[in-house]
Amino acid sequence: MNHISDAELMMLADNELPEDRSAEVRRHVKDCWNCLARQAELQGGLAEFLQARAGAFDMQLSAIDGPAALLRARMKAVRPERRQLPWNRLALVAAVAVAGFWWLQWDIEHPLKPDSRLTPGATMAMSREEVCAVPDADEMRLVPASMAGQVFNSYGIQPTPRIYEVDYLIAPALGGATDPKNLWPQPYAAGVWNAGVKDALESHLRDLVCKGAIDLSTAQREIATDWIAAYRKYFHTDKPLSAHASFRKDLPWE
């Protein structure tokens, strides 16, 4: 019989081997002093690690009651309607992107603003508390493929990979809805006023809303009317701040 590897001995000790293989390995180990010694070393080592680790971490944990109560309050604030949001059933269209030739001629200083007839903006019925209770997650990029196609269609764009992202005009983190009326194709390479800059504005507005510095409806209206004007107003600048040019919302984690 072949030599039993440390990995398999470890699996045996942890009861992780499939049954037939487990029986085979056990039979071998019974008569193999070398294997027995290594198995003992692995088991002992793991036990020692578990003990050392327990001592290092357990003392730091505070009582669970506070955190549990906080979680319950936050769950209460999650609106039941959320379950009907389309991104349940979505294929993950992480930054659906497309191309056309014409974008090459794009004046790179020229911002692409959404067409206000096609994309006036749409919101979910959520209060400030509800918006702020839900973590600023990355559902940003979860647009169903069919809906993305519809958006490109309405803008008369032929989709080709990696040139556009289908962006929310009013971000979900600000109560924006996943609705064609709230989606538009935003070129990644739209010069200085690109998707990263808009993401930075969204984060900033959300902070202001959750701190109570501005109303949720004001934030929604301003970003929907003219996001570049809103950026200039809230960051007190004419041009995008250099740090924001590469600002990226994190990638989806699921």
């Binding site: 440390d6 990995a7 692995l42």
Partner: peptide, 16 residues
Amino acid sequence: LGAVALALSRSVLKAT
């Protein structure tokens, strides 16, 4: 799965 078993056996032996 194999990578997990390998990492565990390797690191337990190394640590101890």
